[in-house]
Design a protein around this nucleic acid. Structure first.
Lengths: 354, 354
DNA sequence: TTGAAAGCGCTAACAA
DNA sequence: TTGTTAGCGCTTTCAA
């Protein structure tokens, strides 16, 4: 049956060759071509070579829709993409997503981005699950009581979280959990605090987020732990504010007046930029008179004059681990990896001496 | 035929209900259910209601793979995701991608991200085209002689470019072109330059990219045009360098020494940050002694002390236009939109007076 | 080692 | 207005 050139409905490119086209050309059955692609070891060497030649000549690539339908898997990873906040120094997503896409490709997956309603953290997931549009999800915006995780777990949808299941830490009964990858924020701020203490500082202040932020409290503990393990006081040296530059500015001013710190460790680069503002306003030189450390190693930290010392999250590594966990979840037999906690590093710049 | 609960191969969630399940429950044929979903106006009101009730009760969503296979379209938009350069102030992608995802959703599409080899700008596209994994592409990293556009055009693959087809501007013969959306960089730098001239500056310098950057030359023209239309000289006031902070720093120092400008317009925030460095080193106050304007309205511009005046690209609008063009391309009959050139705005901050 | 048959879930075309 | 038939391109099962 000579194949007429089929066309896509919108009359774009001619329809690509199919298994049947390759089979005809190679003089074998469709099944043999399928095996050549998926189970080449089943074919005799010369048959395989003949089929491969036909595949090459025709430029054949298996049709995804057909394959997806048959195998019930799409090799697509879903990820809800929330925008970075304007006015904060967080370009986390860009770095993470790129490596995620890269690592996914190596594992044979693509990344499907979707949006959701702002007010409903679970919106968007349901439709993708029911329409079997993706094989699994990456959940990035985890926070206390994170509803996505519970929702997905309840429906037995495979996913990996970037972020610990915080709701579990307080001694909840052990139950089968999803794999997760996270960065040890406390270790990061501890690194930052130790860096200052090693340089001779003894009064190091903390500017962090409001108490309802679990991540913020985690980071705060790195700071307080570092001070306490050297027998240094923390009283009066901590401030909890909104994650904005003005908040950081004001917190720094108050702390400077009331607690006379010689160094600041901040929960974000945004807050640290506020501290730098206050220092400038008072004629204090960052890194010389007062040391400042931020968190996230954002572009702002890299480009601000003199440079801002900052804690850098190993986002590339996180993405690689996420994909590794995903591969485990989706392989048969299924391998559920335990949680992975990665350590950040400290990038030292002018704001803390050097 | 009572339906046994099928399971996915990896033994995750039970397989979702199908058209047949809904049909059985509603007491109609599968085709009628399909029509209820895709052509509801064909059904009698009471039948429609009955089918819809069954759909609701079962939580039915059409299976994508099956639909894709049948309709030969995936409702997926492919986009190659390149990472932002570290050390430059460009967080363009984040803003653009978010709105792209959002607008795509409203149009009934999802965004599929893929990676490519660094050295081959066309890698990644081919496989997606041949496997009919996406309906169209968004091409973002356009530049002179951009090979993706030519490649895709040659294969009749629908796509929309973020970026003008620069190779065409020099009077190439008219031929069927792809839709594109771009931001008028020259208009942006003109805005910036006029802003300084209106404030009384007469010697405004330019720090831009090397001559082989078409985008850089476009932006440069905005500056030179603004000066020329007021009869002001440009000679000796322009510098073309790498897009790094140190380059901006050095260029500013040289220009300050040799041309005595009172204002700087830069092709990027990165370069502008370099200018600010030089001003600080010389005890010159940005916005008071010397005015500085950057380009991109990056986080750095927003957060740097005092603030950096910057040209802001309407990336959200770009994304919306891109999706509109895509909708046109993919609709039947096909509507090919002309190119769309959007105007940037100027965000005035402390570095230019305020 | 290769081939034939069946069917994944859906929609286009047509018939009733 | 609704139902029947066919088939999109692939892989799984089973037979040769």
């Amino acid at each position: 049956m000579g194949r007429t050139v089929r066309r896509l409905p919108t009359a774009y490119a001619a329809a690509p060759p199919t298994l049947a086209d390759v089979a005809e050309r190679a003089g074998v059955s469709r099944q043999t071509v399928s095996n050549a692609v998926n189970n080449p070891e089943l074919l005799r060497a010369d048959t395989l070579e003949r089929v491969r030649a036909a595949i090459r000549e025709l430029g054949y690539t298996p049709n995804r829709a057909a394959r997806n339908l048959r195998t019930r898997s799409t090799h697509l990873i879903g990820m809800r993409f929330a925008p970075a906040q304007e006015g904060t120094a967080n370009a986390t997503m860009d770095r993470f997503v790129h490596t995620l896409v890269e690592a996914s490709r190596e594992a044979g997956y693509h990344v499907l981005l979707f949006a959701g309603e702002d007010d409903d953290p679970v919106s968007g997931y349901g439709e993708l699950v029911r329409s079997t549009a993706v094989d699994a999800f990456v959940v990035t915006d985890t926070y206390l009581g994170n509803p996505q995780s519970a929702w997905l777990e309840g429906r037995n949808v495979p996913f990996v979280a970037f972020g610990r299941p915080w709701d579990d830490v307080a001694g909840a009964p052990a139950r089968p959990r999803h794999p997760w990858v996270d960065v040890d924020g406390a270790a990061g701020t501890r690194l930052a605090t130790d860096h200052l203490l090693d340089a001779g500082h003894t009064r190091v202040a903390w500017i962090g987020w409001r108490k309802d932020s679990v991540i913020g409290e985690d980071r705060r503990q790195g700071w307080s732990g570092a001070l306490r393990s050297r027998g240094l006081p923390t009283t009066g040296l901590a401030s909890r504010v909104e994650d904005t530059v003005p908040s950081g500015r004001e917190a720094a001013a108050v702390l400077l007046d009331e607690a006379r710190p010689t160094g600041f460790v901040c929960a974000s680069d945004t807050l640290a930029m506020g501290v730098l503002d206050t220092l400038a306003a008072r004629g204090l030189r960052p890194g010389e008179d007062i040391a400042v450390v931020g968190f996230d190693d954002s572009q702002v930290a890299q480009l601000t004059p003199g440079g801002l010392t900052s804690v850098r999250q190993p986002l590339e590594e996180v993405a690689v681990e996420v994909v590794a966990a995903l591969e485990g979840l989706l392989s048969v037999p299924r391998r559920v990896r335990a949680g992975v906690l990665l350590s950040p590093t400290l990038v030292v710049r002018g704001s803390s001496g050097s």
